[in-house]
Design a protein around this nucleic acid. Structure first.
Lengths: 196, 196
DNA sequence: CGACGTTTCGTCAATAGTGACGAAACGTCT
DNA sequence: AGACGTTTCGTCACTATTGACGAAACGTCG
């Protein structure tokens, strides 16, 4: 299991693995890098690698959990009475994109990635995002019916990720462009979710 | 890769694997059965097993592909000019729900299954559904912009699965109830996708 | 510092899943 | 039946992941 680090030593190991992975990933691409190489570079065993990360691909999304927490918090802090779509828009626009990280990931041979793995992870992220949004809706509209909030949460999430999908396929993969696509996607849904 | 069977021989092998798997699954449970055992029982190599099924768990959803094909076909046969939401609604309502298969799956020690696997598979199904829908939109509206169709396909899919999610949690898990929820969920989106 | 409980690692052994390559089985044509 | 192109398989080799168990490293207390 992915035991979250508890002590100083494990934190050191974790950092070493992260560093080793980044180097390898940038140098030879993600798929061409084996978990064993990363472990070796970090001076630990393969088994230890898996004690810190659920999978090789987890390293690419290492900061993901904190990002989700950030998103939940951002939603919670939106003014009461604001429409959900607007809240989501505000939240994702305010997201502290780590340009460094994003750029670095963009430099990876993303196209050489095992699609199924990455896609799988993306789906997980999307699912978590939808859950966060649903929780938010439940908190703000306790009386709303289940189907309505579920449809809203899932649809809005779908729009956000649709924008991301289109962005990933487009030539202009800049942050502003992603923002533009996200805004446009969300505006499509806005009219039907004004009551949330 | 999961090479779909092409010839008589492969169809025979495929059937043998399916039979062997069913026996083992029912006898000792899914997780306690290794792919190797299934292959051996069917008289083939492990490698061959994976030539017919992407994974051990695929056997549980063996009929899924045909279901997806059915859905694609149903969409394709919808009258030209009909709104997508209406087409989707018509397609899922006409779906040939197989009570037999569902019952058998229910008899397996499903509770002993690794939940993440099943959830993962569900997400896969959802994704494929979205793809089928996107293809349909592309075919019917070749001139439409990418973002618009992607958002539509994903949102509509999200609504359908949202209905399913609510249904799974509800006490009345009858087919008519699922239909009602699906219809209601889709009607929420209908207004904004009239142009498709 | 030395004993002791806890955490982190290494080692061993399995299962899952894939790519590459050559042999065997098929189907077709003559 | 015999020759030939296509599929399906078996074999080999490797990476990904995980459970079990024991040794080493840490941190704390006397």
């Amino acid at each position: 299991m992915a035991t979250p680090p508890q002590t100083v030593r494990s934190e050191r190991t974790r950092a070493a693995l992260r560093r080793a992975a980044t180097v390898r990933f940038l140098a030879q691409g993600v798929e061409a890098t084996s978990a064993e190489e990363i472990a070796a570079d970090a001076g630990v065993t393969l088994r230890t690698f898996y004690r810190h990360f659920n999978s090789k691909h987890d390293l690419l999304f290492a900061d993901y959990d904190s990002g989700l927490q950030w998103f939940r918090k951002a939603l919670a802090e939106r003014p009461d009475g604001e429409e959900v779509v607007a809240s989501v828009q505000a939240a994702i626009f305010a997201f502290p994109y780590d340009v460094e990280a994003v750029t670095q990931i963009a430099n990876l041979r993303v196209d050489a990635l095992d699609p199924s793995r990455i896609v799988q992870h993306m789906r997980q992220v999307q699912s978590d995002f939808a859950h966060a949004l649903l929780d938010h809706l439940h908190r703000r509209h306790p009386a709303a019916d289940e189907l309505g909030t579920t449809v809203a949460a899932r649809s809005i999430t779908a729009a956000v990720f649709a924008a991301m999908e289109v962005w990933l396929r487009s030539p202009d993969r800049s942050l502003p462009e992603l923002a533009r696509l996200s805004r446009e996607a969300l505006e499509v849904l806005a009219p039907i979710f004004r009551h949330y």
